[in-house]
Amino acid sequence: MKKFEAKTLEEVYELASNEFNCSIIDLEIEIIQQPSKGFLGFGKKGAIVTAQLKRRPKKEFKKNYKDTKYKKSNINIQDVSEKIANTTKEIKKEKVQNHTKVPHVEGKEQIFNNFYTENNQKDEIAKIVIKKDKEEIISEVKKDVNLLFQNTCYEIDEIEVDFYDEETLYIEFNGKDSALLIGKEGYRYKALSYILFNWINEKYGLMLRLEVAEFLKNQEEAIYNYLIPVIETIKENGTYKTKPLDGILVHIALKRLREEFPNKYVAVKTNVKGDKYVLVNEYRSN
């Protein structure tokens, strides 16, 4: 067990990770002192933690999380995001060292454009051969994602992990405070999706479907109801442009309209104000 000190938790996590030359999720970390800015420079404190390498069990992880509640602490969601971001950096380094080929991940907008399915062209992600079996992946992701959130300020149940389909991993957050992870207009949901997607896509070559307190289910129901008259109009006129849709709604609409009109051109467009909408037109015409 080694002790590390720095101005912020992010810096102290990085120190520990560099010292042991491993990913942050491979360490057992105990926070001794939270950083504090003090008042007018008085009482300023840095972050202090102790860390050591985890002991790797020979058998598959079988810890029972049933009826587990994660208690509140002084750590906030920003700290968790920083831990996951650092983990992503370490995974990228390991991929380079092992000469493992990983598909190029575009910017945030491109990632969200790929969340809710794609055209008929084969995606690079689909070409990846996943060497681990499904049960091993589920067990590993479930263990790590629960570990990352066990010391947050939110009371959440055990985080569920399963396969949604052959190329998509399903992660579900529930519990007393889980709805707080959504944020106003879903901004926290989108940030959490982006962080978890980067980690899972880099390490396992999988897509992600994230559910938080039935947020995704409710959004899908709302957009499906909106699209009922839209679909009828498209059948009559052959073309349509939806109203501006925010965040995840545009991707749900894109998936639904592509399913309904496989022989038409269905794509996300952006107007001069930066608003996104879905355009349905004759195939391959603008």
Rank of each mutant, 00 (worst) to 15 (best):
K131Y: 13
K122D: 08
T168Y: 14
D123Q: 07
V129F: 15
F215L: 00
E136F: 05
I125H: 09
Q97S: 10
V212N: 07
N201C: 06
E172M: 04
T117E: 12
I128E: 12
L206T: 11
I182C: 04
R188C: 01
T168D: 06
E140W: 05
N174A: 05
E118V: 11
I195A: 04
L192P: 01
K95Q: 10
V212Y: 12
N218T: 11
K184H: 15
E160K: 06
N146Q: 05
F197N: 11
I182H: 15
L208R: 10
S139E: 09
V161P: 04
C153P: 01
E124W: 10
Y170K: 06
K190S: 05
K203H: 12
K134T: 08
K108V: 13
K131A: 02
K176C: 01
E158L: 00
E167V: 07
H99Q: 09
F149E: 07
E166F: 12
I130D: 07
R188K: 15
K127P: 00
K132C: 00
I159Q: 02
L208N: 10
N146P: 01
V102T: 15
Y164K: 07
E136T: 14
H99R: 08
F115P: 01
E124F: 12
K142R: 06
E90S: 12
I125Q: 08
K131L: 00
G175C: 04
N198Q: 10
G205I: 08
Q121D: 06
R188Q: 12
N198D: 07
I128N: 10
F215R: 07
Q110A: 13
L206Y: 15
A213E: 13
P103H: 06
L216P: 01
E185R: 04
T168C: 01
N114A: 12
I156Y: 11
K127D: 06
I91S: 05
E214R: 04
N119K: 08
N114I: 04
K131W: 07
D133H: 13
K217E: 12
D157E: 08
D123A: 04
K143Q: 05
E160R: 06
A179R: 13
S178G: 11
P103L: 02
N114Y: 15
K142V: 02
L148Q: 07
I171A: 03
F173E: 09
K184L: 03
L181G: 06
I91Q: 11
Y116H: 08
A179L: 05
K176N: 10
E118D: 13
V96K: 15
E167A: 01
V141A: 05
F112I: 09
E135Y: 12
I156G: 07
I159T: 06
L181A: 06
H99Y: 14
L208M: 10
E211W: 13
S193P: 00
L148K: 02
I171S: 05
N218M: 03
L206K: 13
K122F: 15
F197L: 13
